[in-house]
């Protein structure tokens, strides 16, 4: 019994020690399953547009930045719980999310697209082919794709997956008719499954990606100032958009 108590005490001490080490770093939460915005490289490090952007911000405010990956739907709850200090994960600014988090200025604009299964949807068909009640649409949990699929295709059966790759696999395998998701990913996914998928030519609106901070965060002014300076043509954001998405002009966030 005494040994057990000693062991438990040791564990608590260990935990306390881990806390005091590096508590000053800015912990950025992300879902590292969203290339090219964030994913895990072969050596285990996180890389992508959002990772570079937050590193640059960290250098700007002279603070170390560490990243922590989890499921997309876990990001906002973990921000609220104080487990992470910011979210940089290709997250769209939406009114609903703005009730619970504080969004920075947008740093990128990406259209929402529709990827369809060539097995399930006729070659020339457009969005109207997805309006029936026998249509299955795959989306990722808590993404704007989920919201848009529900609004645009109220009759369809919306199937929600935890991860992009799983939702996309359903379309490639012909188990779902379509995936509603961001256009950058859809282009990548189509390249992965060129024969079994097709991109529908119509976009479902534009999303603005922003960093999410806890409500009332003191970091907001510095982050907004940084983004305002760097989203100008030729700034750091342009450089990163060109590096990771191959086109700064098309994805630059223009509003504000």
């Amino acid at each position: 019994m005494r040994r057990i108590v000693t062991l438990l005490l040791a564990l608590v001490c260990l935990a306390a020690c881990t806390k005091s080490a590096g508590s000053d770093a800015l912990v950025v939460g992300t879902e590292a399953a969203f290339p090219p915005f964030e994913s895990v490289a072969t050596d285990g490090s996180l890389e992508g547009f959002d990772i570079d952007l937050m590193r640059a911000f960290g250098a700007h405010i002279n603070r170390e930045v560490t990243f922590s990956s989890r499921d997309f739907s876990a990001l906002i709850p973990d921000l609220q719980a104080g487990r992470i200090d910011a979210i940089a994960s290709g997250m769209s600014r939406t009114k609903e999310r703005a009730h619970v988090v504080l969004f920075s200025r947008p740093y990128a604009r990406v259209a929402t697209g529709v990827l369809v299964s060539t097995q399930r949807v006729a070659d020339a068909a457009g969005l109207e082919a997805l309006e029936g009640d026998d249509v299955v649409i795959a989306v990722q949990r808590k993404t704007t794709g989920e919201e848009k699929a529900e609004t645009r295709f109220p009759n369809a059966q919306i199937r929600v997956y935890d991860r992009e790759v799983d939702a996309a696999a359903e379309v490639a395998a012909g188990r779902a008719h379509a995936l509603v998701y961001d256009m950058v990913s859809i282009v990548n996914l189509h390249a992965q499954h060129p024969e079994t998928t097709r991109i529908i030519d119509t976009e479902l609106g534009i999303e603005l990606y922003a960093v999410a901070l806890p409500l009332g965060s003191e970091l907001a002014p510095a982050l907004d100032a940084f983004l305002a300076a760097e989203t100008r043509p030729g700034g750091k954001v342009d450089e990163l958009l060109a590096k990771w998405l191959g086109d700064a002009e098309r994805f630059r966030a223009t509003e504000e």
């Binding site: 399953a33 895990v40 490289a41 696999a169």
Partner: peptide, 22 residues
Amino acid sequence: SIIGVAEITYHAKNLQAREYET
């Protein structure tokens, strides 16, 4: 792996998500 613990399933999921190699 769902709550972000970097155990082995987490790494397999990351590989799948990045390379689409299920």
